[in-house]
Simulated scan of single mutants.
Amino acid sequence: MVTFLRKKGISLSLKEYVITALSYMALGLFSSLIIGLIIKTIGEQLVTIDMSTIGSYMIDMGSFAMDAKIMGGAIGVAIAYGLKAPPLVLFSALFAGAFGAELGGPAGSYVATLFATEFGKLVYQTTRIDIIITPFVTIFIGFVTGSLIGKPIDSFMTGFGHIINWATEQQPFIMGIIVAVLMGWALTAPISSVAIALMLGLDGLAAGAATIGCSAQMIGFAVSSYRDNGIGGLLAQGLGTSMLQVANIIKNPLIILPPTIAGAVLAPFATIVFQLTNNPSGAGMGTSGLVGQMMTFESMGFSWHILWLIIGLHIIAPAIISLIFSEWFIKKGWIKPGDMKIMYQ
């Protein structure tokens, strides 16, 4: 049985279904919901400065990309691609993802696509009418899974997210720290903080704390590792992802402490002092493409006050705190030159 499954490209691996699938799910979200929200936000700002024609087009464009079925289809194709699905399964996964998203949101799309893709791979090239059987099975399994499992899972995830949102409102100090640290780690780890934030529906202060934690990881590593990686590493981590440090963290786990401390220190300032908020689309982004900052404006509105808060809490303060602690760790010998060197190949 194991040999047969491997021949079909089915690994039954937790790594594949969690790490790989969530990572590719994030790409699907980037390609639909998140870019759509950015386009829509830009359009709304253009309308306010008397560029209503272009702004209206961008609002319509962004709204279309944010549609649940479009988002779900993008998630479906992305996950199926990540799981190395053959062409017929890959294309049919679009429908499975769309069904799942329509019935159960991002979590429903994720679950429906996983089942649909693996069952599709199972029947692929087993009959002479493969061009009919494979897409039929993939779509059918996706629809059934989305109907039976997607909605309950989405309800659980969003319910859990509501608890986190509520708890952060009630206990902004401790919950702000917890959310910032855990979401920051999720961003740096080889899983998707974006997918987690969207499936949980992190919003308000909790999303604001998550943005602080994620930004601290990215900016913290970018600045702390400048000696090892130069300007290229600064930009790759500061505007790209701190996930580039995963291999180095495995070698020396202490290197993750400076940006983590920065996130933990700054989270209460965001939740208690300045009450920075965000939305689910920006909560897990950090400074990646500055989406977390754009979504903060989307959540709180644009003003010079908010702009300076974002620059201070998302960029300058994490850089300073992380640099102070990383340099101290270097003096103590806990971090050595080259420990944060990024190997791109």
Rank of each mutant, 00 (worst) to 15 (best):
T138N: 05
I164Q: 00
G184P: 06
A206K: 02
T126K: 11
I139K: 00
K84E: 15
L148I: 06
F173I: 11
T168S: 04
N165K: 05
I131F: 14
G161C: 01
I153D: 10
L90A: 03
G184N: 07
L148T: 02
G161T: 03
S147E: 13
M199G: 07
F99C: 06
I196P: 06
G97N: 07
F140I: 11
L103A: 11
L122T: 07
K84Y: 10
G201S: 04
Y110M: 07
G150S: 04
L182Y: 08
V194I: 14
P190K: 05
G82F: 03
I141L: 06
I153A: 14
A85I: 08
G150N: 03
A101Y: 07
G142L: 07
R128S: 14
Q170M: 14
L88K: 09
F95I: 14
P86L: 07
L114W: 01
F156L: 14
P190A: 10
F156V: 14
I153N: 12
G97K: 05
L205S: 03
A98L: 02
K84S: 12
P87E: 13
F91H: 12
G105K: 01
F95K: 06
G184F: 11
T127C: 01
A167V: 10
V179P: 05
I132G: 13
M175N: 09
G184D: 06
I129C: 12
T138W: 02
I131K: 15
